[in-house]
């Protein structure tokens, strides 16, 4: 999976800025995408490209259980969010609904990857390759259940009884 990085170098990016509360009534995914990150970066919608990644700090997606948050990012073209840590509901919504990959990274990757860098993510080797800077970083592996749900393509396609 290869794409360019949009970096928000801060912790605690919450669901109120990922998709403000006034849009919770909206269930049209394309319309939600036009308001993604509106509370933090009004230019996000114009700059994001299909296949991009977001890079951020600790506790990404904290706040509400709104599935609108991973939906708005995913329908903006975001394939993965790389963060030092995630809030739990955002994380499981992203995985169970198969909207995007929440990838936990270490401090070295967070510090080294810059806005606009082209990176390649390989979840089979847990490696992130920075094509722009020609460097390789390790991502934290998914836990067993998360790995299985991701491989199945979301919770509804995952068959726990066949384990």
């Amino acid at each position: 999976m290869r794409g360019n990085v949009i970096k928000y170098a801060q912790d605690n990016i919450d669901t109120d800025v990922i998709i403000p509360g006034q849009y919770l009534k909206v269930h049209d995914y394309a319309e939600l995408a036009t308001h993604a990150m509106e509370g933090l970066d009004p230019n996000f919608h114009s700059k994001v490209k299909e296949g991009d990644f977001i890079l951020s700090g600790k506790n990404f997606g904290c706040g509400s259980s709104r599935e609108h948050a991973p939906i708005a990012l995913s329908h903006s073209g975001i394939k993965a969010v790389l963060a030092l840590s995630f809030a739990r509901i955002f994380y499981r919504n992203a995985v169970d609904g198969a909207f995007l990959l929440p990838i936990e990274i270490e401090q070295d990757a967070y510090d080294a990857i810059s806005e606009g860098d082209e990176i390649d993510i390989d979840i089979s080797t847990n490696e992130i390759r920075n094509m722009t800077k020609n460097k390789i970083y390790k991502m934290k592996p998914f836990s067993e259940i998360i790995g299985k749900i991701i491989s199945a393509g979301g919770l509804f396609k995952y068959k726990p009884d066949q384990d």
């Binding site: 259980s65 599935e67 499981r92 259940i145 919770l155």
Partner: peptide
Amino acid sequence: CGLGHTDIAYVLLNGKIWFK
């Protein structure tokens, strides 16, 4: 515990949900 709507849909149909 709070969940997103994919998980709630799963519970409505299956009556169970995963937790760590």
